[in-house]
Design a protein around this nucleic acid. Structure first.
Length: 359
DNA sequence: CGTCCACGTCTAC
DNA sequence: TAGACCTGGACGG
């Protein structure tokens, strides 16, 4: 779930779904969570949210029913969340607290209305929260909400060692500059910009150093070229935000399949994949580029051969089948490409489409 | 049953 | 630059 767009959608979801709700009572933490207990003892409070890259802040503000009667300004605290690999927010009833809910905010009892619960759900528990802290100091501006500063922070710091002699696919995961970009976004960004994942990051980014913030329209009004990777960091996030069809994190996006259909490269069995220096899988098309680590893709050599044979066997006929064959052979020579060993259920639709094409 | 893999950090040698 | 931190789904035997 959670890269920049999901964090942003979560904040939109909370601001929308919790708008007008009054919360009350203590904030409940699961027994198993190692994150801090939140001491917050006011009769009533409201919740708002904001996101920045791969972080999200909740603001809790004391609610006083009658305006102007409070002697003191309302109390306020913030909770900074990082979602890890599986964190998300879900609204539920008291009777249907989701499994793996680790932090719960309860609405006040209110005659007619049933109590609702805002849950931080995180089945792998890599997610973290901290109370009353600022955004992570080692994280850059948000490509979604602060694109211009995001871009400045990169082009003004290109001489930093973070960009020197590094593969662009690895630099794209450096949250000091690419806060919010994760493994699926880097694949989609590089795929659309037609940049080889293991090209030198400094060289690549220097090419776009003086480009316009937004692609410039051609004179005849034709669509501008959108291959600027920095612009794509913003634009591709925006596409994901639009997919949900509103802020409905529950039924939108990942659960209705629109996200899977939107992905062009990530975990697509027709693409190539390699592991980067941090053993993270990068999905790509075409040439890998010069900075492929020596040990990339030697993780499961035993199964690889068998998988390659399976793939060729199943590729029946047609251009794609031949193309595929070439791909596997050339990467075998390099001893550095991984053929997806399983197809993700997420890509069932791709395979279906392919079936239609080859029939 | 077992192994591998997953939208991400962290920190310890 | 490994591992650690976690749960669970897909797949293999």
């Amino acid at each position: 779930m959670p890269e920049g767009p999901e964090l942003h959608l979560s904040s939109l979801f909370i601001n929308d779904s919790v708008k007008g709700l009054i919360f009350s009572g203590e904030i409940h933490k699961s027994d198993v969570s190692k994150n801090p207990t939140i001491k917050w003892d006011v009769p009533f409070y409201t919740i708002t949210a904001e996101s920045r890259g791969k972080e999200m802040k909740l603001w809790l503000e004391e609610y006083t029913p009658k305006e102007g009667t409070q002697a003191m300004p309302p109390q306020k605290i913030s909770i900074l969340f990082r979602f890890g690999m599986s964190g998300c927010f879900k609204l539920s009833s008291v009777d249907e607290i989701p499994k793996h809910s680790h932090l719960r905010f309860f609405t006040a009892k209110n005659n007619a209305d049933t109590i609702q619960v805002l849950n931080f759900v995180d089945f792998r528990r890599f997610g973290k929260w901290e109370v009353n802290v600022d955004w992570g100091s080692d994280r850059g501006p948000c490509p979604i909400t602060d694109y211009e500063n995001f871009r400045h922070n990169i082009v003004n710091n290109l001489e930093n060692p973070a960009f020197k002699n590094k593969a662009i696919c690895e630099v794209l995961l450096n949250q000091k500059y690419f806060n919010g970009i994760g493994n699926y976004l880097r694949a989609e960004i590089l795929f659309r910009s037609k940049i080889a994942p293991f090209d030198d990051a400094y060289n690549v980014l220097c090419d776009w150093k003086h480009a316009a913030f937004y692609p410039i329209k051609t004179e005849n009004g034709a669509a501008p070229s959108n291959q600027d990777p920095l612009y794509l960091c913003h634009a591709i996030c925006s596409e994901v935000l639009k997919l949900s069809g509103g802020y409905d994190v529950e039924t939108g996006l990942k659960e209705n399949g629109s996200f899977e259909k939107w992905l062009q490269c990530y975990q697509n069995p027709h693409m190539k994949s390699l592991t980067d220096r941090n053993k993270r899988t990068i999905w790509f098309d075409g040439e890998p580029g010069p900075l492929v680590p020596n040990d990339s893709n030697i993780r499961r050599p035993k199964t690889k051969r068998r998988i390659v044979e399976n793939v060729v066997e199943k590729s029946v006929t047609g251009v794609k089948a031949r193309k595929r064959n070439v791909v596997t052979e050339s990467t075998e020579l390099q001893a550095s490409s991984r053929i997806p060993t399983r197809r993700s259920p997420r890509f069932a639709h791709v395979l279906e489409l392919k079936g239609e094409q080859t029939l």
